[in-house]
Write a protein that binds this DNA or RNA. Structure first.
Lengths: 143, 143
DNA sequence: CTTGACTCTGTAGTATGGTACAGGGTGTAG
DNA sequence: CTACACCCTGTACCATACTACAGAGTCAAG
């Protein structure tokens, strides 16, 4: 009926697919970022495809300045099997706001760098490049 | 002529203005992220206004997932007093590409969360929310 | 039925980015 | 001239996020 039992997704395979170390996966499990997977009789972890996606998500979110604790919050938004919907919505809106702030900050940085490139190309010496100036504008309270 | 000598910007004032700890400033100095400031006769550090901007920039870039080493590279783009313009341009383009990747990843995350919110509001149970799916699409190789 | 690649648990070590003293000098207000 | 807030150097410690063993069991191929 199904050909799934043929190749169980062991920790090593997941690690290769998600491009992280095996130890990292076990670490995320200990930290509660990924659920304890079912085990074979001999104690081997067996994962589903979704685990790879989840680990890749963690990796990506980390590169965007989210801490593992924050990533845990992000993941918990979907982990709940319905219920407490209003709470989830509030959290989601919070996270969206955080993301918007990050995007704005990055766009501001991008504009500065682009300006630097243009200035550099055109005139020769750029004593007062705008890279810092643009970003000086009042804290955006990104934790 | 000038009223600047009245209130020299000491490390404590810079820390308050940039909203970081005093120790953090000295740490950044040791790491070469901010230049060694001139000293008073008694050895007190005296900063210019630009130092505050620089520290705030570091803080912001850190929240966006850049390491101190990467921030150093970003800052070095403007630190150079002209010369090696082509090199600076190449680096700047590199950094712009990195920033674009981060922005895209964040926008993808934002879309997923927004989708979650909408789904949550409309129908009741969202067993297969798209938060992970959207982000699963092939690595963007953000280090 | 052995060999080699894989897995397990548990503990210890590392890199990054700070943070917190200790022990001492500075500076100015009362 | 002393009190108190501030600064100095140096070292030690901390949290986060891994990373690397050690010592032992598992499993598929030859």
């Amino acid at each position: 009926m199904n050909a799934k039992t043929a190749a169980p997704l062991t920790i090593g395979k997941v690690a290769r697919l998600a491009e992280v170390g095996i130890e990292t996966i076990r670490f995320y499990e200990r930290e509660g970022l990924i659920p304890d997977p079912p085990r074979s009789e001999s104690g081997y972890r067996h994962y589903g495809e979704d685990s790879v996606a989840r680990i890749r998500f963690i990796k990506k979110a980390k590169a965007l300045g989210f801490s593992l604790a924050e990533i845990g919050e992000l993941l918990s938004l979907r982990a709940k099997p319905s219920g407490s919907c209003a709470n989830v919505q509030a959290k989601a809106h919070e996270k969206i706001a955080e993301i918007d702030q990050k995007i704005e900050a990055l766009q501001s940085m991008r504009t500065s760098l682009q300006g630097l490139v243009v200035e550099c190309r055109g005139t020769g010496p750029r004593s007062e490049c705008p890279i810092l100036n643009t970003l000086d504008a009042k804290e955006t309270s990104c934790t």
